[in-house]
């Protein structure tokens, strides 16, 4: 039954990896034709955990492309729900396919990033640091939290999942950005409340003393990651429940 979602994943990965490769080829052509030069004042050492964190945005893009998968079934439930399999099992299989797709996209993004660094001769400056496992946990926690929130919100909607997913980028970016603005206490409190549900709040640089979002919650980075994973669990369980018990 997950066949349809696998076809969707193939389309998304084809587009995403194709675009990333195209960018890489253009930059490579520009580099080798002498139009692009490396600056000499680069930092000698680059932590791999930093690179892994930057590449999270690739995973997030693909996550928001895959998140409307269950929602997209709203017009084809007569096929999806007439297969000899429990609806909840169908939903979990869709989610599993999406999770694998996100991981593949992330690995590909990291590979392209490494290729960029190699092309510019900076790959040798990468250092393996102890923060890599926690960085990966945070990256996937935040990415899947974003995915879970979109699937949860769109679980019972008739279509328009793609629109919600696209708007989530604007919504999370704006809400995250507004937190630092000097608003009156009441409005500031509302924005803070909204930021609790903002995946970017839980996205942090585990190797840095300054965290992108943890000022909102002022919590330990590992706790932020844990909360993000809790969101993942709750939103996905709720999504499966909502989707598999909806009426058509």
């Amino acid at each position: 039954m997950q066949y349809v979602e696998m076809l969707r994943a193939r389309r998304v990965l084809t587009w995403y990896c194709g675009l990333l490769l195209a960018v890489f080829v253009i930059v490579a052509l520009s580099f080798y034709s002498g139009h692009t030069h490396m600056s000499d004042d680069r930092s000698p050492d680059q932590r791999l955990s930093d690179l892994l964190r930057i590449c999270a945005f690739g995973a997030m893009i693909v996550a928001t492309c895959m998140a409307p998968g269950l929602n997209a079934e709203s017009s084809t439930l007569a096929i999806t729900w007439t297969r000899p399999a429990p609806r909840a099992a169908i939903a979990w299989r869709y989610i599993a396919v999406d999770a694998v797709t996100i991981v593949i996209a992330y690995v590909f993004t990291v590979a392209v990033a490494l290729a960029f660094l190699a092309m510019f001769g900076a790959a040798g400056h990468l250092t393996f640091d102890a923060a890599i496992p926690s960085a990966l946990l945070n990256v996937f926690g935040v990415t899947l939290m974003w995915y879970g929130l979109v699937t949860f919100v769109t679980a019972r909607m008739d279509g328009r999942g793609g629109l919600v997913s696209g708007l989530s980028w604007a919504a999370f970016s704006i809400v995250g950005g507004l937190w630092a603005a000097p608003f009156p206490p009441l409005l500031h409190g509302l924005i803070t409340f909204l930021d609790y549900f903002n995946p970017l709040t839980y996205f942090h640089n585990v190797t840095s003393s300054h965290h992108a979002g943890n000022d909102v919650l002022n919590l330990d980075p590992s706790l932020l990651t844990l909360i993000a994973w809790c969101f993942v669990a709750v939103t996905l369980v709720a999504t499966v429940r909502l989707w598999s018990t909806r009426e058509v």
Partner: peptide, 14 residues
């Protein structure tokens, strides 16, 4: 659904 086939009023296709 192993033995039940269904075709809805409006074709439900991708």
């Amino acid at each position: 659904f192993e033995k039940l086939g269904y075709a809805p009023e409006r074709p439900s296709l991708y």
